[in-house]
């Protein structure tokens, strides 16, 4: 087949969360440059199943870059080498024929490996359950301009709301910190009037849960912002910090 590539893959294999993992080497021919990264893994899995071997487990759902399910550390980068995309939106044309690609799961104590490249990200759910909500029913969508919100504030809240909770921020951070994720959620709700009433309790509870899960602290390296597929800004971390300071001083 002309125009296809042969790729060498070094993939993390691990039976379950209690087993020792190891890297397994695969050579995959006939990779089309038009394939997405996940389609390339599908091709590899098809090959493995045909050979009677165990398919590689990896998380995926929408494959449209909006669900935040895929979570691959590709050649030393969360979601691979491109900026602002999830692994499912990474295409094989980014690589070259003969390339070697190392694929690892997210590495962080609060994200234990369940199998191969799949990690348990329920720590994020517990952080959300600790305070990432508005406790009262706020009703349906109000008529436009019923609650005046300045356009720049609404825009900033929407930017924070773009977080898909994939965990790339944790994966990329040298400290395994979840600050960008928590900051996006705190910031989104703190900016909007519906979230104001509970802002102090929210930030305290979410930070306490984040620490209890075992995530590291933020060292302000901003690797999270650089690797976030939704390009959430670290200015939201600044807002979380000031929200936390305000909550503890008042």
């Amino acid at each position: 087949m002309s125009g296809t590539m042969t790729i060498t893959l070094n993939v993390w294999r691990q039976r379950d969360r209690n087993s020792e993992g190891r890297f397994a080497l695969y050579t995959l021919p006939n990779v089309s440059p038009d394939m997405s990264f996940l389609e390339m893994l599908d091709l590899l899995n098809l090959d493995l199943v045909r050979k009677g071997e165990e398919a590689i487990a990896f998380d995926h759902d929408c494959r449209e870059g909006i669900c935040g399910t895929c979570s691959l550390y590709i050649n030393g980068r969360a979601h691979g080498p491109l900026k602002g995309v999830t692994a499912c939106q990474l295409h094989m044309r980014t690589f070259h024929d003969g390339d070697s690609i190392t694929i690892e799961p997210w590495r962080a104590k609060p994200f234990p490996v369940i199998r191969d490249l799949v990690v348990d990200r329920s720590a994020f759910d517990r952080i959300m359950a600790a305070g990432g909500f508005v406790s009262v029913r706020t009703g349906g969508a109000p008529d436009a301009n019923t609650i005046p919100i300045p356009k720049p504030v609404a825009e900033e809240a929407m930017d924070a709301a773009a977080c898909i909770g994939c965990g790339a921020c944790v994966a990329a951070c040298k400290n395994g910190s979840a600050m960008l994720f928590v900051a996006a959620k705190v910031s989104q709700l703190a900016l909007l009037p519906q979230g104001h009433a509970e802002r102090a309790r929210r930030v305290e509870s979410m930070v306490a849960q984040m620490d209890a899960e075992g995530f590291g602290a933020c060292s302000n390296t901003y690797a999270c912002e650089a690797e976030c597929p939704k390009q959430i800004s670290v200015t939201h971390i600044a807002r979380l910090n000031s929200e936390y300071l305000r909550a503890n001083l008042t």
């Binding site: 590495r107 104590k109 040298k174 075992g214 390296t221 690797a223 650089a226």
Partner: peptide, 16 residues
């Protein structure tokens, strides 16, 4: 302690 298992391949110079 937050990352007991390190990455085999890591490129932090690309993002920080």
């Amino acid at each position: 302690l937050a990352r007991p298992v390190r990455y085999a391949v890591n490129r932090p110079s690309e993002n920080s």
